[in-house]
Nucleic acid binder design. Sequence first.
RNA 1: GUCCCAGUAGCUCAGCAGGAUAGAGCAACAGCCUUCUAAGCUGUCGGUCGAGGGUUCGAAUCCUUCCUGGGACGCCA
Length: 595
Amino acid sequence: MAQLCKRSGTTGNSFSSPRSTWKRVFSFQGGILMDHKLLFAKVLHEQGELPFDIQTIKQLIETPKRIEMGDFAFPCFALAKHLRKSPAIIAQELQAKITDPIFDHLEAVGPYLNLFLNQEKVSQHIFKQIMEQGSDYGRNQNGKGGTVTIDLSAPNIAKPFSMGHLRSTVIGNAIANLADKNGYQPFRINYIGDWGTQFGKLIVAYRKWGNAESIQQNPITELLKLYIRFHEEAENNPRLEEEGRKAFKALEDGEPEAIQLWKQFRDESLKEFSRIYDLLGVHFDSFQGESFYNDKMDEVVEILQEKGLLVESQQAQVVKLDEEEMPPCLIRKSDGATLYATRDLASALYRKRTYHFVRSLYVVGNEQSLHFKQLKAVLKKAAYAWADEMEHISFGMMLKNGKKMSTRKGRIILLEEVLQEAIERTETIINEKNPNLSDKAQVAKQVGPGAVIFHDLKHHRTNDVEFSFEHMLNFDGETGPYLQYAYARCKSLLRKANFTPSSQVNGVTDEQAWPIVRLISDFPNVIRTAWNNYDPSKIARFALDLARSLNQFYAHVHILSDPDHQQERLHLIYSTAITLKESLRLLGLKAPEEM
RNA sequence: GUCCCAGUAGCUCAGCAGGAUAGAGCAACAGCCUUCUAAGCUGUCGGUCGAGGGUUCGAAUCCUUCCUGGGACGCCA
């Protein structure tokens, strides 16, 4: 039960307390709060003599909505039938029966038995734990070091990095961070969209209207112009489409001039992308995009053929998925060319062989959910059991005026422009509020993009988000800067007090401190839940709650002017700072020391 | 037409392995800087949880029908 924090080398045993019960019950696995919940369930089972086993009782225990109602509540409705008494009476009887020195007290309120923890003890325990574990606080080893490949970002070459790609990038990155925190080894793959008919179109457009100089200077913008113009002109001139397909065929056949152009477009795009990834603070372990699989697709087709899955249908090669109640998966076009699904099959095989993943995640918009269902189904039909390890982490679209953004129609917002705007806005605010700050430019680069990232991650990923400058660049309330500000406040206090943590510290008893302690105690649990649901917004919400509680404490309790309580309060600030910073890191935000 | 997702305060969203008076933020209004960073804090205003049925001691949460919005549904990715 104990011995779960291998990484930091700490276990429940390192905690010394006058009461042996402390040692016995704390596993640290789910955090101290979860331990107390279990303990409460045990006590109810043993002292309360309930007709349920401990697990059942534990499941019944809930957290009251309001903190005045205690830390845990046991609703007695379910017992009413068994004991043939009213829930309220049962609650009262239980309250009288149970006496455990670890708890502060119990209250029977109507049909509920409410438990209040010993705030002093719990906070003291947390201080000590965080002092020992530092930024490893909340980490677990559930993943046992297994590799998780994560397919994220995947922008298209020669197209600008739009707001739409932001979602996959930041959600994927946060999930990768969560994987690591839960004991897995994340492997970030940027499956660049660097192949396909659009390159043929681009090559045609470049030859017709392109200008080498302007492309050199402003590659993506100019390429986008060409791309848009191509589609505009193609509406009146269908011959262009044909030319585009031809040009792509030439590219596939290795025509030197086409290849040279493709390489140029690709290189320029990657350069531009890396500038954006720097601003976002995201890095990748692999950039193997679609073109990487060009020579790996024959094998896929062969395998499907050998296993008798490939059938001809309307001149195309498909895998039928009738039993799965899905439309067939297209493998080869009638002209023999391969498709998106073919490439994803090839990449799935490659990734399994190369990385031996225990899980393979695809952070891709929910409009592709059918595609990924088909992908898994085809692999299962081909008897690859590991298809079950693949998961499509879908997310909602970034909308503009309630509609999908479209590259072709030029209805698109460039991420880099938004990031730059966010940085400029931050600089303005710094000059207004903290003009003496050193490193203004550096801080602005952390805060501005942080606001953009956080705005995305605070929403549950499956929801669509309407693009809005107003909301994204607002720095008040539930925002990235709000979190960073709370952290900077903590650090400022710790600096001023010249703080160093100590194991001899007492717990805190301030009324405003308890919500903070409770939140911090719950962090390990939040980390597991966020990972299990692939849900970074859980961390975002947690961080907001923590920052809000911190700000409330800060507003009500003056720390540096009260030497009697300064040590424990500073430990509270210190513990909050570490937990906040770690939350920000998991989300992919920086935590400036001052702002 | 079939399937998937969503509909909670003026706006953006939490809450949804059923539980105690439905929570935040923004916006609006009113307060709080001679003491730790006001990117903050405190208060006021604001909700038939899309609609109707059902299950239950109890439903925003589960089931069902309908309405509305979005998406997907073979040679794009």
